[in-house]
């Protein structure tokens, strides 16, 4: 799975937790979950759990700590998928 494909899946995960229609329509690497998408911090946990389920990976606490932007989250998913494959 390349970066673009990961972001596409990530978009479908994030959507139910944000009401910021415009920001959702313009999601890119620099999108910030809290500042741009106004996602409630208690729902960030749901996003982490959804990512674990959808990608079949495990997100450790150190990785979760960085998951505040699309960029950081995509990088973590790519790393975990690679570790999984290897």
């Amino acid at each position: 799975m390349n970066k673009e494909e990961i972001i596409e899946v990530l978009k479908t995960i994030i959507e139910p937790y944000s009401e910021e229609v415009t920001a959702l329509a313009h999601i890119d690497e620099n999108t910030d979950f809290i500042n741009d998408l106004k996602i409630n911090s208690a729902n960030l946990v749901d996003i982490v759990l959804d990512v674990e389920e959808k990608f079949n990976i495990e997100i450790d606490n150190d990785s979760m700590a960085k998951m505040l932007t699309v960029k950081a989250t995509t990088e973590i998913i790519a790393q975990k998928l690679e570790a999984h494959a290897g």
């Binding site: 208690a42 946990v45 749901d46 759990l49 674990e52 606490n61």
Partner: peptide, 17 residues
């Protein structure tokens, strides 16, 4: 709102927080 916005009984939820 918390009641409808977050399901903390979801599997692994509490353990992450």
């Amino acid at each position: 709102l918390a009641k409808i916005q977050s399901n903390w009984r979801r599997k692994n939820y509490l353990d992450k927080i």
